[in-house]
Design a protein around this nucleic acid. Sequence first.
DNA 1: ATGAAAGCGCTAACAG
DNA 2: CTGTTAGCGCTTTCAT
Lengths: 334, 334
Amino acid sequence: MSKKKISIEDVAARAGVSITTVSRVINNVLTVSKKNRAKVEEAVAHLNFKPNVSAQRLAKGLNTAVGLVMPGYPGIFHSFYAIEIIRGIGHACETLKLDLIFHITNGYNPLNTNNVGGVIFADIIENRKQIEATLAEGIPCMVINNVVEDLKVNYIAVDNVKGAKTATEYLLGLDHQKIATVTGSLQTQSGLHRLQGYKDALKKKNIAINDDYIYEGDYSRRSARLGLEHLLSLKDKPTAIFSASDDMALEIINVAIEKGLKVPEDLSVIGFDDNPGGLYGSVGLTTMHQPLFKMAEDAVRHLNAIVGGRRHTPVRSLLDPELVVRESCSSPKI
Amino acid sequence: MSKKKISIEDVAARAGVSITTVSRVINNVLTVSKKNRAKVEEAVAHLNFKPNVSAQRLAKGLNTAVGLVMPGYPGIFHSFYAIEIIRGIGHACETLKLDLIFHITNGYNPLNTNNVGGVIFADIIENRKQIEATLAEGIPCMVINNVVEDLKVNYIAVDNVKGAKTATEYLLGLDHQKIATVTGSLQTQSGLHRLQGYKDALKKKNIAINDDYIYEGDYSRRSARLGLEHLLSLKDKPTAIFSASDDMALEIINVAIEKGLKVPEDLSVIGFDDNPGGLYGSVGLTTMHQPLFKMAEDAVRHLNAIVGGRRHTPVRSLLDPELVVRESCSSPKI
DNA sequence: ATGAAAGCGCTAACAG
DNA sequence: CTGTTAGCGCTTTCAT
């Protein structure tokens, strides 16, 4: 109804001071008498005054907003990943009182960078050109979940190599010798890195890498099913499987049970992601937890520090995944 | 590096016209000669000029941003629901060239409404006071996924009563007579409405409502398990179950299989949501599809029309869920 | 400690 | 069809 916007002038009038003074209390400038401050605060509260953000930004010449660019392919949205990222970034923006401008890439319209202090790219997929363009405009960028060495851009990612190594070593520690893996898509960095970590762990223990034990999946449930079928067709069947994702691990367990195997007694399975879906299967999934929420929060904080001129060194941060032991792994039967 | 912001003046200088003319071409005002338009466009492209959104907003006095307020409780984020809403709203904003300001409520800091033309509330839970406050400020609001009659607010929701009725009628059409339901939380509107729809369908067929067949769940997997156990303990067991959510339906199927029942031969199960998880179970889940994406898109469009003064009547829209037949229902064995 | 005044970059009458 | 000019609401020197 009453769309009468109240401005700093109204506040000044009611408080009986100049707009400059009002501006000072809004911005926490100290040189305001206690008395005037109190009057202004009263007026602000009474009038329910909220500064016009556009005017502030224009006057200050800086931008208290961060852009979040998400690739638009449908899959990403159905993943636990996207949610955690959005949640973490949203939370950090809240705390830092930054506007979060959310943008889904369709390849066309890039985010209007004039409107933000910095931008976070939720993935490098589909975004490479846009990242380069944004960088060229001199706007601080942060790539999440990807180690990117070929661009002069800040990044913060989960250490997939280390995580996969930890997972495999856990299986090794349980005395498994015949450990197979169903990989994620080898087109993705995470897929590659998780395979690498698996190999690293085996090498470190001087266990020869058996190509039959490496099934190239693509993160789909279907590929997981095929993977297990292949692995079970081997004369020398593995006793444990490192799956590059929880989703695939869950499918592997389903198929194993269908085939009359007991998990973990006959087959140990470890996943990667710590997707909440892992809680609901017939057997609790042992997996690697990814600090997605923290990664997202850190991304905002670091970016903000850079935008605010408080940080000058590039961010190249790698976060460690953590082992979550539930019920899907045990020592092999002798 | 070169953070030299180029402004409308630079463009005007290069094109050899006034800034007004530049402004005109930016805003697609038609009264610009072809020649000048071309010159300006060249300059814009050459300088890679992007209008300063804050200045535009300040000058225009209107706000081309929409706020999206999501309740902050963790659960919502792990749901298919949140993702679809975000995706739909993001897509619509993209198309309409609106900034999407994403805000997670924590009870404290409300969204600074000075910065947006209108706001969409992803749910009414935890947000009631904020909605009232926003309304009081004269800012158009839109509530999603809730029928709210006690507030003078726009809403757009899925017709849960009708959806539940359709689901139950489908079971009836398959010749089931003994149809039970596991409800969602009866603290929520959706839980209540879905139960209502179930009852409506039965009444319409003159089938007496058997209280034993109504198990009050709460949308959790655990309550679904308990629900099925209860239902199977009955002397006169139901032959079909309408589950108020896919998640619960999936658990019901799992438990049924554990107990040696065949789905759908021994027990038909229909869900609600059309959650992608429904595709992956041992048997494809028959369910009610909710047009979440469309609901979110519509919310933005309608809100935008209201903000732009193109619509004056309140929005009170109910979207129909659609039956998705997969494999979890069949006619009862005689 | 406080206020006057000059912009921030853009749009929108208003003249011409 | 085009340019001049007065703001939009706020911050920020610079005086006082």
